[in-house]
Simulated scan of single mutants.
Amino acid sequence: MNIVGARVDERLVHGQVANLWTPKLQVERIIVLDEVAAKDEIQKSGLRMATPMTTRLSVLPTRVAADHLNNNRYGNQRIFIVAKKPQKFLDLLNLGVSLEMINVGNMSKKEDTTELTKQVNISSEDAEIFKQIATKGVNLIAQVNPSVDARDLMKLIDEKMK
């Protein structure tokens, strides 16, 4: 597997992913983990329009993505995985996919969330999922785009969710 990036971002493929992260990481394929979008041609079409023309896009249910990744379906392509919620990455890890790092880029403010950074707001359930991911040896960072410093997500959770 040649996974060069993994990102939690509620907006999936959009300006930051398409115009900043994709060129920075020299991404050849973006994999969107989303069961609903995988079955919805309109959502897939919108994601395709947001994806750079030089980059391939796969919109897949998590189990299918894990199967493709574990069986090296994409060869040496540089892969960037994006999902709306951290649970998708925990599922991917539990299905045998290896990830070194997950970048948490955008989780919007809701009634039950705590602000970790201006862009990252998480619920207590999200915090538990991130803790489970961290116990699997995955480095978790909060970084909105490549031009700002990455922050240790687990430290932010420890500081702000007492």
Score class of each variant (00 low, 15 high):
residue 101 M to D: 02
residue 96 G to A: 03
residue 99 L to K: 06
residue 98 S to R: 07
residue 98 S to M: 01
residue 98 S to V: 04
residue 96 G to Y: 06
residue 129 I to S: 06
residue 144 V to M: 14
residue 118 K to N: 14
residue 146 P to Y: 07
residue 127 A to H: 09
residue 114 T to Y: 05
residue 145 N to R: 12
residue 121 N to L: 11
residue 92 L to H: 02
residue 130 F to W: 10
residue 112 D to G: 03
residue 140 L to N: 09
residue 101 M to I: 01
residue 93 L to H: 04
residue 126 D to Q: 06
residue 125 E to I: 13
residue 96 G to T: 04
residue 113 T to G: 07
residue 130 F to K: 10
residue 103 N to H: 03
residue 136 K to W: 14
residue 132 Q to M: 15
residue 147 S to L: 09
residue 126 D to I: 00
residue 104 V to A: 05
residue 125 E to M: 12
residue 128 E to F: 01
residue 137 G to M: 10
residue 107 M to E: 00
residue 107 M to D: 01
residue 106 N to P: 05
residue 111 E to D: 12
residue 112 D to W: 03
residue 121 N to P: 04
residue 122 I to G: 05
residue 123 S to Y: 08
residue 104 V to H: 03
residue 137 G to P: 10
residue 139 N to L: 13
residue 144 V to G: 07
residue 138 V to T: 11
residue 135 T to S: 15
residue 122 I to A: 05
residue 111 E to T: 12
residue 127 A to N: 10
residue 132 Q to W: 05
residue 146 P to G: 10
residue 117 T to L: 01
residue 109 K to D: 07
residue 115 E to G: 09
residue 135 T to Q: 15
residue 92 L to A: 00
residue 113 T to E: 01
residue 128 E to V: 07
residue 111 E to L: 12
residue 118 K to P: 03
residue 105 G to E: 02
residue 124 S to G: 04
residue 125 E to P: 02
residue 99 L to H: 00
residue 104 V to G: 04
residue 115 E to Q: 14
residue 121 N to M: 11
residue 102 I to S: 01
residue 125 E to A: 14
residue 110 K to S: 06
residue 108 S to D: 15
residue 111 E to R: 15
residue 104 V to Q: 00
residue 141 I to G: 13
residue 138 V to S: 08
residue 120 V to W: 00
residue 143 Q to H: 13
residue 108 S to Q: 11
residue 122 I to L: 06
residue 129 I to P: 07
residue 143 Q to F: 07
residue 105 G to C: 07
residue 116 L to C: 03
residue 120 V to G: 04
residue 123 S to L: 08
residue 142 A to W: 07
residue 146 P to D: 09
residue 107 M to V: 11
residue 97 V to E: 05
residue 97 V to G: 00
residue 94 N to W: 01
residue 127 A to E: 10
residue 141 I to D: 13
residue 92 L to M: 04
residue 106 N to A: 09
residue 147 S to I: 11
residue 100 E to C: 00
residue 124 S to M: 14
residue 114 T to D: 00
residue 100 E to H: 08
residue 109 K to T: 08
residue 123 S to K: 11
residue 108 S to P: 02
residue 129 I to R: 07
residue 110 K to Y: 02
residue 93 L to W: 05
residue 97 V to W: 04
residue 116 L to A: 05
residue 130 F to R: 06
residue 103 N to C: 01
residue 119 Q to F: 13
residue 145 N to I: 14
residue 142 A to V: 12
residue 134 A to R: 09
residue 122 I to Y: 02
residue 111 E to G: 13
residue 130 F to H: 09
residue 143 Q to S: 11
residue 110 K to I: 01
residue 111 E to W: 05
residue 140 L to F: 14
residue 104 V to F: 00
residue 100 E to Y: 03
